[in-house]
Structures are given as structure tokens and as C-alpha cells.
Write a protein that binds this DNA or RNA. Structure first.
Length: 704
DNA sequence: ACAATTTTTGTTTTT
DNA sequence: CAAAAATTGT
């Protein structure tokens, strides 16, 4: 799964980009051309050349996972010298590194106290509240949230928008929501993701001395996946960098672009802004075979706006890329499972070498079934998110309030959780007070309790709540597990949880119980728990989005049908279509050796069956580069009668991985066990002889 | 005010 | 189909 770790082998182009120190560099790198390798090596090379100067370089990646991998590979490349202070390295995402800067320097821009970071779910809750309060159609919250986020990531303030759009039929209501949102965030002492970047920019702009300090610290700046950099992130880089920057990206691999409005071509902007920038290309793919390169290239070349790249490789032409068309999704899934089994039994590929990709998560169901039937181990990646479950969110709300009592979103969430008998009526009074005075809900409650106008019984309830919050927030410098215990002893909320929720919470404790509360809270917002598949011997199932940055020797892309790839909701504009094509391209170029593409005519989406047509993108593939195979319908009665028994109860004497001894071939490892009760066959991998398939009755195997 | 029932909705996803 | 939202009934 990880890219080739043959660290010493760098291509001439990579070498040139590493050694070039005369000015800014834009590296345009194709899929699998060693872009990340280039970055980690440049880091290591500079570091080893002059530790004094280059021990605090800034290196940013798009996701935590990518950043972690970058950090690991840098550590590997500079060697495991204990004097290397890896923890102090400025390697991470834009957001985490900005957060780090802000925590150090927040006083300079007037952030007092401990802010909380709102994730997109918190943002949505707040926006729904605002829409509701302004008597606007609440169901629009998602669209509103993404537009506000777009404004913020483009560094457009409401004022600027007012003056720019004054005379157009621009949505004035949207701007009012934006203003309200910003106001509420300020009162609540919360920052959203975009704020982390824009506040840092403001910090630098208003405090030249601080900016200069960080210009010193960041003696060189390295940026991975540069094509996905937002305007704000780019401004951040522009403030910090002069000649000491290298950015690397591939415009063919942007997959989060068209969701916002039109966005400028960031690659072109870099070349324009850094006028002495040098463009370098990495076009030698170390990953894909010639055939895969040819097929994927023919698809991506149909995109309208892109930098032309001509990828080439030293590798063999390899297996032909195959496209299979089935009559039903079950047949498709069965074929994939059977094919994986065959690949595995032949012994050239382990299960962990194989990935199955799809456009939407619900496609995994059928495939999972088929894999279970073939007894193939697998893992579905990216479908469970522990921190987004309801019960966990409740707990996190409490923890956040311990940290920052002004957190309105959290206070609204748990004010009646467990039920404290505070009525809607009272809540409205509190909201009005907070709005009128421009203060947080917590402060509004305190104020109302001190004044007259509320009945004593209501006041008592509110005072109890306030007392609880005060008690909880008394001591902030505690660890997460202490904090959770505190919440447990002072509220009845944990008692009411079911087993699953308790399991989730103990998992959180297990994972980060020792972290200081504040650190845990920013971690929760800034990092998603990505299930790591490294080292596990199972097939990986995931969406095309999730596979970004990975590679597998064997890749199956399923559901190559119009409506799925491209997705039916993204076929209106040519930008949307281009993005779907890039997504498809991304999936294809994950494959090192073998690429299968499959589709099915009959597919069930939600409740109804649909007749699908093969993906329109397949037309872009020249007929001679690809093997086209159409599986005809198996007569229904034969098909349904042939396979209905789950046939699970057959017990096999050997498990995969167990070691055996053969009279002739010596010691081997069982890879698989299958067949009928009285005719069990095994596949054994003998290190000296190779993979053998044996009939158990005649083989005389001995368990060791 | 809260539980039970009916209606609606439905991509992907990072921070 | 299944979860979330909206509506109705007690």
C-alpha cells in the first residue's frame, strides 16, 4: 500500500527539484510519480545539510493521514537519531499548524480565554439555529453553510460582499445570515476551520514582527497536494514565503473543487504571483503499468481545463485492463469476490494488495455479502465515525463547556440533556437576552438569574445548571479521563447510556485518556479517526474519495455505470462532469499492476430497482487498450437454485496462517482451505517451492 | 410536554 | 431500505 520505499532511487527530475534552491518551485507531478517522496527527501536533504537552519521547516499536507505519513517518511529518511526533535517539527495540515500558531500568539489579536474549534457539524447546528431564528427556511442550512464557508475561505468579509454585490440581485438574506453567524461565533468564543486560517493571516498582517519571526522559523516551506489549496491557505503561504518554497500538485487529482463556486486555477496563480517561480515536471510514473497509464490517460485527456502531462513508465505493459458488464449487481459482486479468490490462490497477491472502489458507500453492501460467501477477509474503510455519533457528541459538548462556558452550540445541545425541566419558553427568554446584550447564553442565564422577572422555581433550575457548569469548569488543566469522570459524577447523563455508547466512550478514553483536556478538544475537531489498514491482511473496500493518496497492486472499480460514475447529481455542468472524471481517473491510477472495472445493468438504489447503462466515460477508452467482456444473463431459475445455501457449516481443519510440514516440501504456511467435506483442498505457501494446491487426503500434512 | 406515527429524504468528504 | 424530520395524538 505504501509507495516504494526504495528511498535511494530518485529520478533525475526529482533530484533536480530537490537540489534547486534558487527560488520558488512549482512541481507538476502525475499520479504515482513520487511527489510525496520528493517532498520528504527535500526535507531530509536540507535537514541533514544544515540542521541549525533547517530544523524548523514548514511542511503541509491536505489531510491528517497524509501529514502523518509525511512525518513518518521524513523521520525514516533523516534516520532515527534520537537528537532529532520530531515532535517540534512543523509538519501537519494547514489547520493544525495555524492552530498551533494561534495558540502561541492569540493574545496579539485579542483572543482571550480558551477558544473551541467548531467542526462542520457544529457550524451546521449554529446555522440552523440562526435560520430558524430569522424565520428563514431551515432546510437550506447545508447550502448556506457551504456558501459561508466559501466566503470565508476566500477571505471575503460581509462588508466586502455588501459593497461588491450591492447592485446585483445578490442574496441579501444570505449575507445577513453570514453577519449573524460571525457575530454568534465571536460571542461564543469559537473558531471554525476557516477562522483558523484567516485569523492567522490577520495576525501576520497586523503584527509584522510576529510575521517576521515565523518567516525566520520557516526556513523552507514544502506543500503537498497544492492543487487543493484554498485561497486563504494560499494567502497564508504567500505571506510567509519568498524564495524558499516548493509546492507540488497535480491538477488532475482535484476532487473537492466544483462543489464550491468557480475557483481560480491555483497553479496558474502561483506562477503569476511568484514571478521567478520555476516549473518542474515529474512525468515518470513509478506506479502504474503502461496499460493502466494508457487507459487512464485516455480518460483524463477529455477534461477541458488541465495542464497537459505526458506520463510514461519503465514498467512492463502488464495485464490488460478489463471491463466487465453484468446483468445484476449480485453477479458483479460475485465475480469480484471469485476473482480475488483466484488471485489470492495463485499466490502472487495477498489480500492486503487488493482494493475494491466504488462511488457511494451503499454499494459496499452487496460486495460485502459476496466476500463473506467466499470467506475473504475485508475491511470497509471510512464508514464509521465515532466522534460523530450522538452520544459521543453529548459528551464532547460537556467537555467543551468545561473548557469554554460560552460555547453556545454545546450549551443548547445539553441544556436539557438530561432533562432539567427548562421549558421552551424560558429558553426563548434566554436567547432573547443573549441576542439583545450581545453575550453568550451562559452569561445571559447568569444575568437573568440576578435580575427579577423569572419565577423562583425557574431560577432554581437555571442556577443549578449554572452551578454545574461552574463546578465542572473549575479546573481546566486536567486530563481527558479525569474530565470524563467529573462529568460522570456530576450529571446523571452517563448512567443513561446504552452499552454501545459506553463502548464508544471507553474507546475514546483508551485512545486519548492521558491527553490534557484542551489538547484532546482540538484533536477531536482537527483530526478524524482514519482506520489504518496497514499491516492487516484483508481486502480494502472504500469510496473513490477515500483512496486518494494510496496505491494497491490490484484495484477493482465497481459500479461503472451512468448515474454512479458520473454520479447522477453531478452531470449538469461541465465542471461537475470534469470532477467526476478526475475521480474516476484517481481511482484508475491507484493500481500498480492490475485494474478491473465492472458494472451491472440491474442495480437497487434505495428502494427501487434501476436499469443502468455503462458509464459514458468508458467511451473515451480506445477499444484496443482494454478487454471488454459482457457476461450474459444466467437463466433466472438456474442462477437462483444454484447458489442459495449459505454453506457455512463446513469446518476446516486448518486456518489460514497456520504452519504445516509436508514430507517432500518441508515447512509451509496455509493460505487457504476450501472444498467439500470429504474432499478438502488446501493452498500452502512453501517458501522454497512456491504456492501449491493440495488435496488434504493425499498430502500427509503435519500440523506444527 | 412528550411519545407515537407518518412523511421525507437520500453523494462524496477534509479540516 | 433506513434514518431523520415533521406531524399528530394523548
Amino acid at each position: 500500500m505504501s509507495e516504494n520505499l526504495s528511498l535511494d532511487k530518485l529520478s533525475e527530475q526529482q533530484e533536480a527539484a530537490i537540489e534547486y534552491m534558487e527560488g520558488p518551485v512549482l512541481v507538476l507531478a502525475g499520479a504515482g510519480c513520487g511527489k510525496t517522496q520528493l517532498i520528504t527527501h527535500k526535507y531530509a536533504r536540507l535537514y541533514n545539510k544544515d540542521r541549525e537552519k533547517y530544523s524548523t521547516m514548514l511542511a503541509v499536507a491536505l489531510t491528517n493521514k497524509a501529514a502523518d505519513e509525511m512525518r513518518d517518511r521524513i523521520a525514516y529518511a533523516i534516520g532515527s537519531d534520537p537528537s532529532n526533535n520530531l515532535k517540534g517539527m512543523w509538519v501537519g495540515t494547514f489547520y493544525s499548524q495555524c492552530n498551533r500558531i494561534l495558540l502561541k500568539e492569540k493574545a496579539a489579536i485579542g483572543i482571550t480565554g480558551d477558544y473551541v474549534i467548531y467542526d462542520s457539524e457544529d457550524q451546521c447546528r449554529l446555522i440552523r439555529h440562526i435560520l430558524n431564528d430569522m424565520k428563514l427556511y431551515e432546510a437550506l442550512y447545508k447550502g448556506v453553510a457551504s456558501k459561508i464557508s466559501y466566503f470565508k475561505s476566500s477571505l471575503l468579509t460581509p462588508d466586502e460582499l455588501f459593497s461588491t454585490y450591492n447592485n446585483f440581485d445578490f442574496d441579501e438574506k444570505l449575507l445577513k445570515v453570514y453577519v449573524r453567524y460571525q457575530d454568534e461565533m465571536r460571542r461564543t468564543n469559537a473558531l471554525d476551520y476557516d477562522d483558523l486560517i484567516s485569523y492567522t493571516i490577520r495576525l501576520f498582517e497586523e503584527n509584522p514582527d510576529i510575521l517576521n519571526k515565523y518567516r525566520e522559523i520557516f526556513s523552507y516551506i514544502l506543500v503537498d497536494e497544492f492543487q487543493d489549496t484554498s485561497y486563504a491557505q494560499y494567502q497564508f503561504l504567500k505571506l510567509l514565503a519568498t524564495n524558499n518554497i516548493l509546492v507540488a500538485g497535480d491538477d488532475d487529482q482535484t476532487i473537492y473543487k466544483s462543489r464550491d463556486f468557480e475557483s481560480e486555477n491555483i497553479l496558474a496563480k502561483f506562477e503569476a504571483d511568484f514571478d521567478n517561480a520555476r516549473l518542474m515536471r515529474l512525468e515518470q510514473s513509478f506506479r502504474c503499468t503502461q496499460n493502466i497509464l494508457k487507459v487512464s490517460g485516455s480518460v483524463i485527456s477529455k477534461n477541458t481545463y488541465r495542464k497537459q502531462k505526458i506520463l510514461w513508465t519503465d514498467k512492463q505493459s502488464g495485464e490488460k485492463v478489463c471491463h466487465y458488464w453484468f446483468m445484476a449487481e449480485e453477479d458483479e459482486a460475485k465475480y469480484i469476490a471469485k476473482n480475488i479468490k483466484d488471485l489470492y490462490l495463485k499466490g502472487n497477491y495477498a489480500y492486503s494488495d487488493i482494493a475494491i472502489l466504488y462511488r457511494v458507500n451503499l454499494q459496499s453492501r452487496v460486495i460485502e455479502e459476496a466476500l463473506k460467501n467466499e470467506r475473504i477477509p475485508f475491511k470497509v474503510i471510512g464508514s464509521s465515525m465515532i466522534y460523530h455519533k450522538r452520544e459521543t457528541k453529548d459528551l464532547i459538548s460537556y467537555l467543551r463547556l468545561m473548557w469554554n462556558k460560552d460555547d453556545n452550540v454545546s450549551i443548547r445541545w445539553i441544556i436539557n440533556q438530561p432533562n432539567r425541566g427548562i421549558t421552551v419558553n424560558t429558553l426563548n427568554k434566554i436567547e432573547n437576552e443573549a441576542k439583545k446584550e450581545g453575550i453568550s447564553i451562559y452569561k445571559a442565564i447568569v444575568k437573568l438569574c440576578a435580575a427579577k422577572g423569572l419565577s423562583t422555581s425557574v431560577k432554581e433550575k437555571l442556577n443549578n445548571f449554572i452551578a454545574l457548569l461552574d463546578l465542572l469548569s473549575e479546573n481546566k488543566s486536567i486530563t481527558l479521563s479525569e474530565a470524563i469522570k467529573l462529568v460522570g459524577t456530576h450529571t446523571s447523563y452517563i448512567e443513561a447510556l446504552d452499552e454501545n455508547a459506553l463502548n464508544d466512550i471507553s474507546e475514546i478514553m483508551f485512545r486519548s485518556g492521558n491527553l490534557p483536556l484542551g489538547e484532546f478538544l482540538s484533536d477531536v475537531s482537527l483530526t478524524t479517526t482514519n482506520d489504518d489498514v496497514r499491516g492487516m491482511s484483508c481486502v480494502s473496500l472504500m469510496t473513490l474519495y477515500n483512496v486518494k493518496g494510496m496505491e494497491f497492486p490490484v484495484v477493482f472499480i465497481s459500479g461503472l455505470e451512468d448515474g454512479l460514475i458520473p454520479y447522477f447529481k453531478a452531470t449538469e455542468t461541465s465542471e461537475e462532469l470534469d470532477e467526476e472524471r478526475r475521480l474516476f481517473y484517481l481511482g484508475m491510477t491507484r493500481a500498480r499492476d492490475i485494474l478491473f472495472m465492472t458494472g451491472a445493468k440491474k442495480r437497487r438504489l434505495y428502494a427501487k430497482f434501476q436499469n443502468q447503462e455503462p458509464s459514458r466515460f468508458l467511451k473515451d477508452i480506445p477499444k484496443d487498450c482494454c478487454l471488454w467482456i459482457e457476461k450474459n444473463a444466467i437463466p433466472a431459475n438456474v442462477a437462483s437454485k444454484a447458489q442459495p445455501q449459505p454453506q457455512q457449516p463446513v469446518e476446516f481443519p486448518y486456518n489460514t496462517g497456520c504452519r504445516v510440514k509436508h514430507p517432500k516440501w518441508g515447512v509451509g504456511v496455509i493460505r487457504d482451505c476450501y472444498g467439500e467435506k470429504n474432499d478438502i483442498k488446501v493452498t500452502v505457501n512453501f517458501p522454497n517451492v512456491g504456492v501449491k494446491r493440495l488435496a488434504l487426503k493425499y498430502a500427509n500434512l503435519e500440523k506444527i
